[in-house]
Design a protein around this nucleic acid. Sequence first.
DNA 1: GTGAAAGCGCTAACAC
DNA 2: GTGTTAGCGCTTTCAC
Lengths: 320, 320
Amino acid sequence: MATVSRVVNGNPNVKPSTRKKVQDAIDQLGYRPNAVARGLASKKTTTVGVIVPDISNIFFADLARGIEDVATMYKYNIILCNSDQNPEKEIHLLNTLLGKQVDGIIFMGGRLHEDLVREFKTSPVPIVLAATLNQDYDLPAVNIDYESAAHDAVKSLIDHGHKRIGFITGPLEQQINGEKKFAGYRSALEEANLPFDEQNVVLGNYTYDSGMKAMNQLLELGADCPRAIFAGTDEMALGVIHALQDAGHQVPQDFEVIGHDNTRLATMIRPKLTTVVQPMYDIGAVSMRLLTKILNKEEIETNDVTLPHRIEERDSTRSS
Amino acid sequence: MATVSRVVNGNPNVKPSTRKKVQDAIDQLGYRPNAVARGLASKKTTTVGVIVPDISNIFFADLARGIEDVATMYKYNIILCNSDQNPEKEIHLLNTLLGKQVDGIIFMGGRLHEDLVREFKTSPVPIVLAATLNQDYDLPAVNIDYESAAHDAVKSLIDHGHKRIGFITGPLEQQINGEKKFAGYRSALEEANLPFDEQNVVLGNYTYDSGMKAMNQLLELGADCPRAIFAGTDEMALGVIHALQDAGHQVPQDFEVIGHDNTRLATMIRPKLTTVVQPMYDIGAVSMRLLTKILNKEEIETNDVTLPHRIEERDSTRSS
DNA sequence: GTGAAAGCGCTAACAC
DNA sequence: GTGTTAGCGCTTTCAC
């Protein structure tokens, strides 16, 4: 019994000859270790929970792939849950994952409700946030610098001579929009001594349709309509471009637009979309790697890692 | 001990007053049942495995969402694995899932290698195939009728007066392309007494770029180039349309194109894409529902369900 | 209606 | 190097 356990687990304290005998028996009988029993005895399940708003969203799907790839690399499996950003569901999922004795959790979400943070703090297993802001709480997390990314995007538009910059963003309650990206937008304007005008910022909900709608709203400003648009996601940026084209405008000649995320969509439109690249796959991969480090009690430089971003210039902006 | 188990599991054989006492204690202590121990004792984990080629592919992400939603409905969790269609990896994943004592498995893949089928046949838990062809093996599966879908698409093009129809497809080794869609393509031609011409079918690999490339190859046929294209996936269809537009052609005036799947991409292009709708989300949902039926030993009409398809007419084809 | 006890298939001391 | 043993935290008979 114990010896079998040893060979199954690669414990070196087994004589090669017995190891071989055991291995042969295993092969012959088609024996397959029961991971549940193993989990009960060892208190490790080699399974981690992943909570994601919506896996059918291309953005999170990419992230999930990054997570899964490094999970596989470290012999973990993933229990994948969709939260739809619903706070109760988030808490419920967290609890069922903990009940299933996952070794750790990776969480993605728009807004960290404080009840959730409380649960996170008392979790018996480590939790890392992926592409999810952390604010004052000191939870492990991996992100890019959204404020600086937005700043860069807006600045590049300003550098092209624009005085009015449209900003089409997701819900402002989400810190990433309401604080980070918005702050980057404003600071770029300030830096260039440009006035902030509320009518230039329009809310969307991340979707293509909301991007179109937002652009059409901007278009109603007539002569005051900004001729340069920063959209909070690529998908909204596509909507913006099509709204513009449908109205008979040329991109980038009449209007410039810049997106955010660099999803695969960015190259599937004409003109191809200039966009801020947020490395989703990498964020997922790094999050999972960070989690494995915590689980293995490896040395960790910092709990809060910031990945680099950059702007990928394509054809929806005029070349600098 | 046993009584606690009874109240946790909602067993009716408990006096209401004791039930309440137990419940109070549970709440007070923050007791959370250990699903691993429960799984070991009951031989049920309320977890199902999902093997998917690549979750970052919009197509599978949608399917996965359908699966997860009905899984949640029936109180199951999902262990999600990416196979990259690699036969060894598929077998390996199957085995680790079985080791983790999942209650069932949902499998998606392009080609069912016979080693895999053998493993499926001897699996201790039920396996259902989602959007994955079954051929002679009699495994539970849910699909649409790909042959008839392709037939309908090509026929609609023929009805618009085209004599030469381009077919841009994924790898022919995959039964869905090489047998089903291809057969539909040919039968539609035959039905209209149109000759089959090998040069009109071009292979892609499902991606946007491969769609562009395939269309450019077709364009080299010059006067012989088909003016109506059926693309095996929406993403390739987008590539086709852009290749056409880049070459100065008008869609649908000069060329008509029709896609397959009706992913969200279809409405994110100008002209909007006419496409065969394959209800990915539904296929996922129905697969999972089928699995729950098997697990609950419910009455099942048929193991091999075929969901309906239809053509969504948009602007990349001329209106009939 | 409730408790006692066996046992699910492993791991982890601990002896030898 | 290998075997023995005691759990891991539950469910499930089986008595009472």
